[in-house]
Design a protein around this nucleic acid. Structure first.
Lengths: 357, 357
DNA sequence: CTGAAAGCGCTTACAG
DNA sequence: CTGAAAGCGCTTACAG
């Protein structure tokens, strides 16, 4: 179906144009120092012969390295999600490093704005050839994106998006829609009339956009039939186990004054907290849905305390965001600006096939 | 975190060993014509300095092309599934063609053993450097795989597997487990005691392994609680619309003598046939699950006739199978032998994010 | 503004 | 069995 046909090379162009290969190279890369006349001529022949550069020879000859910086949250012990994007990033880098790409990864603490700013500033100091960033602190990011624009440094957003920026791509999930998926699953699993609790684990330091938008999608799904079903939201601000216990007891405890909850939707990866509660109090027959394939969530999924997990495809997020930068800048390909990853529905039965990466 | 450090090159090795680069090259590629003594010496230094070849320079210098043949079913009009693996294959090829890889794709008719044999024989005649095949006709494949083994041609299986062959990889789905996923979804969606129909669209020309194995997984899931729920299997052998209609009426029609079915599991992509039936007869409140994101299935999913589709990730199957061959033979990497792709659960709410490829 | 030459790291004949 | 030289397609100084 396809073959490596003998391709036209720079020397072919040079010969046809009656110039040297150096000159052809100059026009190909817009390096100036060429008269308009020869430039036009070469350009025309390039077009005519449909010249495609040999990227291998090109990167071999030019010892340039394309320096990519990545700025993502540190996984630490409280934020394990971010291990996966990092792994995806590194795998992508392994695949493309031959093309003279270097990758420097910078970490910030997801609950510490200052660490974000500091690291971002460090990166700006370095002036990389491309940046990949998870801009969870939108305001702090925006100022700096302005600087990057001046420096003409292309930016890819990963996991979080900021609208109306000059980023060349966003790679992540449609959070609102993922709430609708959760709603659909609960809708299938519950009988009509059974009530639902939404649990939001709110972070005091901001970055709650995901959570709110998931709740919004979830509620939107039920809107037409909202009369059927009671849906209560509980926001949890504390980190203290004891407090969480109390709040959950009010929200979903068997003695809860509210109508007995049959479905629980936790809007982020901390669903294991709720699973833990259900286990401790031996509450059965509650359908529990949450996010992300953290070890502890997986354990509860396997043991039937969590029914569904929604995965954000974090590994792919890392992989694709680096590839977006690479394809755009090194391979000179057109890339898709908004790359929404699948909203994967995970159960005990298919979990194993999402862990390979 | 990482950088393109100055690497050790062949000339470094040559210098240290007191030989020419040609000799180093000879031992690196086991091309013989080197005395044991110098060979050992070079080998040792290679090891010591942890020499890693520059794959770019290597493929640029050697004008060798690695010829890959692919043998997959033709998509035609009745078998649209196979468009996706083909697209994945082609995308993978686009990414690696620079490394001197050619791809020739051969098609057979999925319901015609002879076409499979004929095309396979053509490929053997060509003696490619690697083969990627969907061995749905196991017996006919086996003989020929024997020949390939003699010719030392590496083989990757795509979508269908044959156990105990010399294939370097299999890329596909765990079909049995996907049946369990379907079972889980119906189990959540139905009330206890409600009965289920399994519909198998059987092909007379063989290749029904997927179907049977999906049913087996499905039934296995319910085994412990089988008494709760009636599960009836209906096999459909005909292609005639009229006959199908009759059989479905017996199986799931509202006047069916059997207990009224509340859940239907169709074990392959022809679930749209059942959706069509439900629509025509205005049967509501039946949960319908089937396989594969064909256009017609997607339409029924969006219109609520189909509730869940299980996707086999066909695009990825194509992509990964070519990459397996590439990574193993060109990049000399270790590859995973059995690459099971995720068992994706698709609903109306997340379908859009599985269509990008 | 332009060309000739050297070089990127590896491979391939060829001569001995 | 071994080495010297040319070449893969492109880029990079340098000289003019």
């Amino acid at each position: 179906m396809n073959n490596n046909l003998s391709r036209v090379k720079i020397s072919d162009i040079a010969q046809r144009a009656g110039v040297s290969t150096g000159t052809v190279d100059r026009v190909i890369h817009n390096r100036g120092e060429v008269s308009k006349k020869t430039r036009d001529k070469v350009l025309r022949i390039l077009e005519e012969l449909n010249y495609q550069p040999d990227i291998l020879a090109s990167t071999l000859a030019s010892k340039k390295v394309f320096r990519i910086a990545a700025l993502i949250p540190e996984a630490g012990t409280t934020n394990l999600f971010w291990n996966a994007p990092l792994a995806g990033l590194q795998e992508a880098w392994r695949e493309i490093k031959h093309f003279g790409v270097s990758l420097d990864t910078f970490f910030f603490k997801h609950d510490d704005v200052l660490s974000f700013e500091k690291q971002f500033d460090r990166i700006i100091g370095i002036e990389p050839d491309g940046l990949l960033v998870s801009p969870i602190f939108a305001d702090q990011a925006k100022k700096r994106l302005f600087t990057l624009k001046d420096l003409d440094i292309p930016v890819v957003f990963i996991n979080s998006n900021i609208e109306d920026q000059q980023n060349i791509a966003f790679v992540g999930q449609d959070t609102r829609q993922s709430g609708m998926v959760a709603a659909r699953l609960l809708d299938y699993s519950l009988n009509s009339g059974e009530s639902i609790s939404i649990i939001n684990f709110i972070s005091e330091t901001g970055g709650n956009h995901h959570i709110l938008s998931r709740e919004e999608g979830f509620r939107y799904y039920f809107e037409p039939t909202t009369s059927n079903r009671q849906i209560n939201t509980t926001n949890i601000y504390t980190q203290e186990e004891q407090k969480i216990e109390e709040v959950l007891t009010k929200a979903i405890g068997t003695d809860s004054p509210r109508a007995i909850t049959k479905g629980v939707f936790v809007t982020n990866s901390r669903v294991f907290k709720v699973a833990n509660y259900l286990k401790k109090h031996n509450i059965q027959n509650v359908i529990l849905i949450g996010y992300d394939l953290l070890e502890c969530n997986i354990d509860y999924l396997r043991n039937n305390y969590i029914d569904f997990l929604i995965s954000q495809n974090p590994w792919e997020q890392g992989y694709k965001s680096l590839m977006a930068l690479f394809n755009s800048r090194i391979m000179k390909k057109e890339i898709v600006k908004n790359q929404f990853l699948p909203i994967d529905i995970i159960t005990k039965e298919n979990i194993d096939y999402y862990l390979n990466n």
